[in-house]
């Protein structure tokens, strides 16, 4: 079972952690960084120099705080603001790359033993926009998804959107919902 939130934190069950991390590293190596208008591109440029500096600073802090870093060895375009897809393992809950919103291709991986532990770690953040749960056991998916404090949960899927599906977050991830019936509530007098 795995849980992913903010697309920056991944929680993997201990028993499968090594295999998942190995496969993620292999996948990272095949990601294509480049022109966002090119259909083959997986990851485009960072939107500004300021943002690139912020990502860079957070990643350096991650290394300094004792995290183990893996970066794809891909070629980066010469011009523009680019950042290599990056994985962190061995990071703690208090680490800045776990707690802060990175908005860059950086994933911090933590492990867990029980579902309760994963839920507690996943909820330990002031944000709660979206998250994902992967498991081959349906009842476990429902248990975990009902306890994650986030507005959208993707179960055994990720990043799906639809105009009929309400989108929006809990806690500091914003107010209200967009899309679906719930997106219409602010526009009607009840």
């Amino acid at each position: 079972m795995q849980i992913l939130k903010q697309q920056t934190r991944l929680f993997v069950q201990e028993g499968i952690a090594n295999e998942v991390i190995r496969k993620l590293e292999r996948r990272l190596e095949t990601l294509i960084i480049g022109d966002p208008l090119d259909k083959n591109t997986d990851i485009g440029a960072i939107n500004s120099k300021e943002q690139l500096n912020k990502i860079d600073a957070l990643v350096k802090a991650g290394v300094k705080e004792g995290g183990k870093m893996f970066q794809a060895s891909c070629k980066l375009p010469g011009k523009g603001f680019w950042f290599r897809p990056t994985l962190f393992t061995g990071v703690s809950q208090a680490s800045r790359i776990v707690q802060e919103e990175i908005f860059g291709p950086v994933l911090a991986i933590q492990t867990f033993r029980t579902a309760e532990e994963a839920i507690e770690k996943a909820n330990n953040t002031p944000y709660g926009l979206s998250g994902g749960v992967w498991s081959d056991k349906g009842s476990k998916v429902f248990k975990v998804s009902s306890k994650i404090r986030a507005g959208v949960i993707w179960a055994n899927t990720y990043n799906k959107f639809d105009p009929t599906s309400p989108f929006g977050g809990y806690k500091e991830s914003g107010m209200g919902r967009e899309g679906g019936l719930h997106g219409l509530y602010p526009y009607v007098k009840l």
Partner: peptide
């Protein structure tokens, strides 16, 4: 209340 939306394949 907060609204939670869940996607299941």
């Amino acid at each position: 209340l907060e609204m939670k939306t869940t996607w299941h394949p």
